[in-house]
Design a protein around this nucleic acid. Sequence first.
DNA 1: CACTTATTCCGTACGTCGTACGCGAAAGTT
DNA 2: AACTTTCGCGTACGACGTACGGAATAAGTG
Lengths: 250, 250
Amino acid sequence: MAHQPDPVLRLLWRHGLDEPPAPRRGRKQSLTVDDVVDAAIKIADRDGLDALTMRLLATELGIGAMSLYTYVPGRKELLALMADQVFRRRTLPPMPADLRERLALIARTHYEICREHPWMPDVMALQNGIGPGVSDLYEWQLSGIEDIGLDDLEMDQTVAVLIGFAGNIARSQERMRQAERESGMSEAEWWEANAAELGTLMAGREYPIAARVGAAAGTAYQASADPSAELEFGLARIIDGVVAYVDRRS
Amino acid sequence: MAHQPDPVLRLLWRHGLDEPPAPRRGRKQSLTVDDVVDAAIKIADRDGLDALTMRLLATELGIGAMSLYTYVPGRKELLALMADQVFRRRTLPPMPADLRERLALIARTHYEICREHPWMPDVMALQNGIGPGVSDLYEWQLSGIEDIGLDDLEMDQTVAVLIGFAGNIARSQERMRQAERESGMSEAEWWEANAAELGTLMAGREYPIAARVGAAAGTAYQASADPSAELEFGLARIIDGVVAYVDRRS
DNA sequence: CACTTATTCCGTACGTCGTACGCGAAAGTT
DNA sequence: AACTTTCGCGTACGACGTACGGAATAAGTG
């Protein structure tokens, strides 16, 4: 027997489904899948992915824990729906005329999404289904690099580099915020409390470059008022590399 | 009162500690921290991070579950020790003379590490302490891009881009492998089982570019005998971008 | 109207996880 | 031999995802 189609697909594409062939009998659902997913997004935005438990979500929705499973098959699928919903709700700006600006826009948009929803990089690391949100987003991203001389595979990899980079920056910033929240001490306070200990422990070993660079990076990331500035250098290098390649081939 | 130093530091830097001031009394430990961490690495390599439970680890070590906590404060700290141990055990090759080769080596080395230990990208996304392994590795990475005209902040960001990219590729490959293992069907089989369903669900919406590019990417990634080939395009673009920047400034 | 049937709601419960607690066992010190 | 310190670990707690089955509800059917 062949493999069955993935049931999460029907959920992801639930809109656009022209009224299911009306098994109208039975008790009505008091909520919609969208309600559930939106509430889940709200919790994850506020308290983090770990805090998003089925019980808490149900409580915030005013229903019993197990009632959630009439809307969503399980937590894994809920996460996939959350990611797709975020993408679906976002209105994507038109692509600028300049290639460099298009590449930057792809990365910056992804970065913004990950800043608004800090759980996004973690969820995207899981196996999510193909929904309308990701499809729209992917199509939009690709539209920014079509007809510039890249073949199909290169287009995919270019998008992957851009959004992978943006996601990494967002995730590392979120990790720092979370560490502060959990430990109750800032990066600077941590160093103040551990510098002496670390000095004696590292006795003998020398890290001349790492010490200097690490210190510079630490203060820079903390002092910066605008976190998105952290994108600039790496993004510029990636854009330079892609544009150079495109120019060379044309 | 000021914050106390992080106790995980003493564990990370446990070697090089010249025999702790001899509280020699009491029962001896039957194992070393290294034994525990190595066993944990072995399990995570074999069965994945989720399969690495304290109980299983204890069983494989032939001790009771709670005995683990005499070696390691908890699971979070164990993960940090695992990452550092992997880095510490690795012998880092000397840096080549050519800058492009140095940049490539930084990325490829990180990619190899993540392929040998598929849990590494996930663990590195957590808040890990500063241990000898990461310190050695970071110093080595920075040594490859020193004195080429980058300031300290740019050096840190260059390394971040390189290893972030390498880690992303490794993680996406691992995700695919895991999806195959869990579902029992390959990427191609999944598409075969879901193409029809997906076609009806997407009715109306068109994804001309995404469909073409996605198909190309899917077949390419599956057909490729050497997974590390997936690095090449993106890595070349990043290297181009960095080298162009360095050349421009000198 | 009553009765059947399909569906939702959800309390209870199971298995698994990390780990707090406390007691008995072992190994130095005195 | 007695004491002190440390390890080993059985038991247990709370939180998690979710399987199961019965009660509640709404539509279709006589």
